[in-house]
Amino acid sequence: MRFLRWILPLSLALGLIACGPPRKSVFPPTVSIQQLVLQPSGAWRLTVRIQNNSYGGMDFTELDAQLAMADSVPVRVHGGFDRDIPAFAGDIVQIDVLPTTAMARALAASAAKGSAGALPYTLSGTVRAKPEQEKEPRDFDFSGKDWLSPAPGIANTWR
């Protein structure tokens, strides 16, 4: 009788816990530069790709990062936006930045080499997002290294 007195409530509690919705795993997104376009003013328009690597959708609202080209001093990349990105999908945002003189020289040197002029860059920082099963947004850290090369046939554009 004692056995039934505690096993019955325990089995009911476990049954109720199992009835809840399954939790979807949340993983940090990947952030990279998809395209860089040199503006007439000298500013750069970055097309930044945000890849959601989670099993559920996420609402992305802000990016705050540092961009360094070659061995130059980094510049701040900051933008606010509203992107609802489904699970395992990506979307882009455009952010304008003002490069340092060294960064502008490095970009010009890569352009002079044509399509062989690959320029290394590092983009690291945080992106703010709210996973679909959470009530509050949170910051996700990211860091990545890649290369930009002049786009053949498209002036002032690197990909």
Rank of each mutant, 00 (worst) to 15 (best):
L8E: 04
A106V: 07
V73C: 06
R128E: 08
S149D: 10
W44R: 10
A106L: 09
G79M: 08
L148K: 05
P9Y: 00
L107E: 01
G42I: 11
F3M: 04
A111E: 11
A18K: 07
L67M: 03
A116C: 08
L38F: 11
K24Q: 11
I92P: 13
R23V: 02
P131A: 02
I95Q: 06
V48M: 06
I95V: 14
A89L: 06
V31R: 05
F142Y: 12
D59E: 07
G15M: 11
K24I: 01
W147V: 08
L12A: 15
A43N: 14
W6G: 00
T122P: 02
F142Q: 05
Q34H: 08
M69Y: 13
V37N: 07
I85D: 00
V48Y: 09
R5K: 07
L8V: 14
A70W: 11
A118Q: 11
A112Q: 12
P137K: 01
V73P: 04
G15R: 01
M58F: 02
R128T: 07
L38A: 09
L107T: 04
P120G: 01
Y55R: 07
D82H: 11
D91Q: 13
G57T: 01
Q51F: 14
L36H: 01
T101M: 07
I17C: 03
A111P: 04
M69N: 02
I33V: 03
S124N: 12
I50Q: 08
D64V: 09
W147D: 09
T61V: 11
G117Q: 09
Q34N: 03
D146V: 08
G114A: 10
R45N: 10
C19H: 12
D91E: 12
